[in-house]
Design a protein around this nucleic acid. Structure first.
Lengths: 415, 415
DNA sequence: AATAAATAAATCCAATTGAATTATTAATTC
DNA sequence: GAATTAATAATTCAATTGGATTTATTTATT
């Protein structure tokens, strides 16, 4: 074909990629087992025949896999479903007690330790507040907390703990000032490898993920995830953070901070450019209350302790909604998310008001050509970060929400 | 474990997902074959032993697969490499003539039809300009063009054509005004299913993708892609558009327009909020030239025909750079891209000035907490859209850059 | 009788394992 | 310097492994 000649374009630069590995039966079986478990989790309960239809695997293959999973105690059989022609089908569901997992949420004002079961229910929890977090205190809290919770389990139950997932803010030393910590107090965090330190004191695998990303993961798995394949997620804590779900999977990005969203430039009430986190964070409300001589302590403890703080809270919600609306438009201009999910460390009634205000503010913006996502409330709530953390060990070992076979699941695992 | 009790969170809403299918040997083989071809493409040439190491497959497996691929003519062997201990390795490379593919780029001012080979080289090309595009003219151009190009191929070559990939703007009828089309002239596009119409006249599989997304795909495969696993891509054509690469794969989103970027709100020179496309598009430069009585026609034909238009062009570059810098910060706040790639339907020297200006403008912005991407020039250039289009049929059938085994490759295929 | 779920047995197929073959360089001996 | 031997690496042949499919059968229901 020498007659075909044309311009060549720029030559390929030296590749740095190391693509995925090849496939073999062992991996195929591991994948199919996870697929079965994930399908069961997603639908609550499915018969072997259902799984065969939904997975495209043969009935026999599914039969074999599910028998093994049942024998291992991961699946249990429900009551036979009669009323249709043919042999009654036996719905299989996840055995809630098959796997437990610890979730540790570290915040600027409080820490939570939860024990979650295989179906995402919180079975025990511990809570601690502080003016600002310090590594030693956190370490003490998590080790004594795990000890205490485990003391209430029997040997069999303890052996079923898949690990500990930590949901923590990255770069805690930044914005120490905004949170009212004494100068320099947060600097210790610079040299702390929390995952390693905790892993050294705990006999389970330890996982670490950004706190907002974790909350997003909880929303994906236990909240609106099944209804929306792509969404941008905002979690309003002491500082606002967020996460991104693409193709029904958390996208955590190169540095693990995709969807951080905090530094996004928006215009404030006066038309000045500010970063989103300077407006739509709880520390802003806290400072507003303090300026007005109102005690902000109810904000710290539990979301249920919030009261209606009246005017300052209303201003904060309005300002935040305005900023969130702009953030959503910016996000939608970059990725055509089907939803924007807003949740936070506050009670449901605050979330409702925040979401409605954001919907109203979004309507005032120039939306020509923008595929606007549905703006909705998160379904998980204030505990989302701890739940997301706790789900890390479980997903790492038993489940998959990605249709990906050979890529390592990208939570870093310690030890 | 009845002693373990805790609050339950909101129950799962009815799922709508239909997750991926299960795995079996047939799919494994198909996947491994694509993996081998993709590795060879990425690295230019690799021996069987290299592939075995990089894929994690056994040498024997790779040997069998590659022998088949060689027999099918997709791979050919290079000269044995001596100079190292042991049997000399035989580098295998893609046979450029194993597969051909047509790429059709439809623009607001011109259309291109290219014939691309298996290694991404353009082997023939045709070009047509117009004041504005109309379906019938496009249809005539593509059918006669394909006929002409095929007439210069022999039977064997014709049989190796994998298909036709179209890179076209979505919603052509919008912004008809900005491009100077007579009122209503572009409305015909509303009722046209271009993919179907062309598929009915062409004997090859037809693929369709947004033009900017296609350009982005070309950059991923033939440009900077191998060096950057995630990047946001801007293609400055008559209208600016863009694309997104995540995990070394095009992310095209729910509506196929992820990374459209055009509607992103930015501040213009005067501090007013505008959409990115109202500033950083070639039609803006065109109008500026026309206002100053300068003939803008050189902009339309080929990128090589551009001349330095002096002051108005400088203003356009500055304005565009300012807007692009803001867009990059917004994008980086949402996803921690490793690079922001700028390319366009203009000559290389314009691209260089645009990128440098954008780097300068970005430095002036508030970047606290933002993980800024590297701002770099595209390596493919003005033909990126057509090349990206032409690569659709090839990737659909022979290659994979995603580590994904069971998800359908998401270019829609017609007929 | 028809239908559907579940499963046992036999078969198939792709990857792996282990051994053998081939081609080369490196080191040693004559 | 030439010949010999060892080491190394690429490739492939033959046998094995293991998981999915196919086919046939059983069970339970309308």
């Amino acid at each position: 074909m020498s007659s075909l000649d044309g311009p060549e374009h720029t030559p390929v630069p030296p590749p740095i990629l190391n693509p995925a590995g090849g496939a073999n039966q062992v991996r195929v079986r591991a994948y199919n087992e996870r697929l079965v478990l994930s399908l069961v989790r997603l639908y609550g309960a499915l018969s072997k025949a259902d799984i065969a239809r939904r997975s495209g695997l043969s009935a026999q293959t599914v039969s074999v896999i599910m028998r093994v999973l049942e024998k291992e105690g991961l699946l249990s059989r429900g009551a036979p479903v009669r009323g249709r022609v043919g042999q009654p089908s036996i719905p299989m569901h996840l055995n809630p007690d098959a796997v437990y997992s610890f979730g540790l949420k570290i915040g600027r004002r409080s820490a939570d330790l939860v024990l979650m079961d295989f179906v995402g229910r919180i079975r025990m929890q511990l809570h601690q507040t502080y003016a600002y977090p310090l590594p030693d205190e956190i370490l003490a809290f998590v080790t004594s907390g795990i000890e205490e919770i485990e003391s209430r389990l029997d040997d069999k139950q303890r052996s079923r703990i898949a690990g500990l997932g930590i949901a923590a803010p990255f770069e805690l030393w930044n914005w120490a000032e905004e949170v009212g910590a004494p100068p320099g107090a947060m600097e210790v965090w610079r040299d702390v490898d929390l995952q390693a330190d905790i892993a050294a004191r705990v006999s389970h695998p330890v996982f670490l993920q950004n706190d907002a990303t974790s909350a997003c993961g909880a929303e994906l798995v236990f909240g609106v995830g099944p209804s929306y394949p792509d969404f941008v997620y905002f979690f309003i804590g002491s500082f606002i953070g967020g996460g991104i779900v693409l193709n029904s999977a958390i996208f955590s990005g190169r540095t693990g901070t995709a969807g951080a969203i905090g530094p996004l430039p928006v215009r404030d009430r006066n038309g000045e450019t500010k970063q989103l986190l300077e407006i739509a964070s709880i520390f802003v409300l806290e400072n507003m209350l303090r300026e007005r001589g109102i005690d902000p302590e109810p904000l710290w403890y539990s979301a249920d302790d919030w009261v209606d703080f009246g005017e300052p809270m209303e201003v904060w919600i309005q300002d935040s909604a305005k900023a969130l609306a702009q953030a959503i438009v910016a996000a939608a201009s970059i990725v055509d998310f089907s939803a924007a999910v807003i949740d936070g460390g506050f009670p449901d009634w605050v979330r409702s008001r925040m979401v409605q205000a954001t919907i109203d503010e979004a309507a005032k913006l120039d939306l020509q050509g923008v595929v606007m996502p549905e703006i909705i409330e998160g379904a998980v709530g204030a505990q989302a970060r701890a739940i997301g953390g706790a789900s890390l060990p479980i997903f790492s070992r038993y489940l998959t929400d990605q249709n990906v076979l050979f890529k390592e699941i990208d939570h870093a695992e310690g030890t």
